[in-house]
Amino acid sequence: MSDPTPAAPSVNDRATTFQAVEGPQPEHYSGEVLLVSAYAAVFVILIAWVALTWRKAGAMDERLTALEREIDKAADTPLASKREPRDRATTSNPP
């Protein structure tokens, strides 16, 4: 039965030459670059979401302004010439 524990490396096992890599090299990534990229990604994603929310709020503000303008316009119009509600207007014949 063989000994399960691996033998300790001897002096003869040490590398005696350095060989240049030939062909495609295995990829190596800098830990610092990966860390900074990850933290930057977190904040870019969060800021993008907040910016989209801000844009959505801006679009709502525009819709609200347009609605207020239409209500003001309707309030200034004399009652007789005010446009009929849409459901009735669609059933009546135009003059």
Binding site: A66, I71, K73, A89
Partner: peptide
């Protein structure tokens, strides 16, 4: 907005 259109307050 829908209510305003239905009531004829909104010309859009």
């Amino acid at each position: 907005e829908e209510d305003a259109i239905d009531l004829g307050l909104d010309s859009r």
